[in-house]
Amino acid sequence: MALVEVRNISKIYHLGGEEIRALDDVSLDIGSGEFISIIGPSGSGKSTLMHILGCLDTPTKGTITLDGTMIQDASQRQLAGIRNKKIGFVFQFFNLLPKLNVLQNVELPMIYGGQSSRERKERAMEALKMVELENRSKHRPSQLSGGQQQRVAIARSLVNDPRIILADEPTGNLDSHTGENILKLFRNLSEEGRTIILVTHDPEIAAVTPRKIEIRDGKVATKLDAKLAGLDRSISNGMGGH
């Protein structure tokens, strides 16, 4: 059984009496340990798919099973628990709490997970070591560079040892060099066996991942757009040796 099984899900919004199908009958499987990019132009529905995969939102129709749990009709409380234990988020704008220091930010998921403060601290330091920021634990996010902030966010997403890491345009707000470093970090994590889903419209990033899913007009595209998927070698600079 796949880690994530998406079956015929649709997401329908009503905007001023008009029906908008953000997702239209999407089905896909994601196996454990896969490194996937979800690509598509803006407005294609890829963000909606990511929100549903991340249990931030529920589909209007269809079923979705995450690590054996049906989540399409889970309660708000259950969804919060799944977000806490099984999913790690990395956002484009880092989304760190500015008033907490780096260590406290990384500890945050464990506060809601109910771990003891000693365990929280130990595991947060471990996660910071993985992103090589253990010597910045007392800094405020505002005292760090963008790349460092994103690494803190990645440490936060790792700290509860989730089944899936969902990254929404993780390099979108970084310069290309820093972005490369972040991507390297993701690839290392993938090699350690973690399941990582990158949502992006950047072909260079898509080129890094072995599997690519393109969403177009709310549907999974049967044939990948070569440019968008980074398959066109003239655009890709061969980053990562794929």
Partner: peptide, 8 residues
């Protein structure tokens, strides 16, 4: 942010 990391 707090909700996305699991706050109920």
């Amino acid at each position: 942010i707090r909700k996305s990391v699991g706050a109920t």
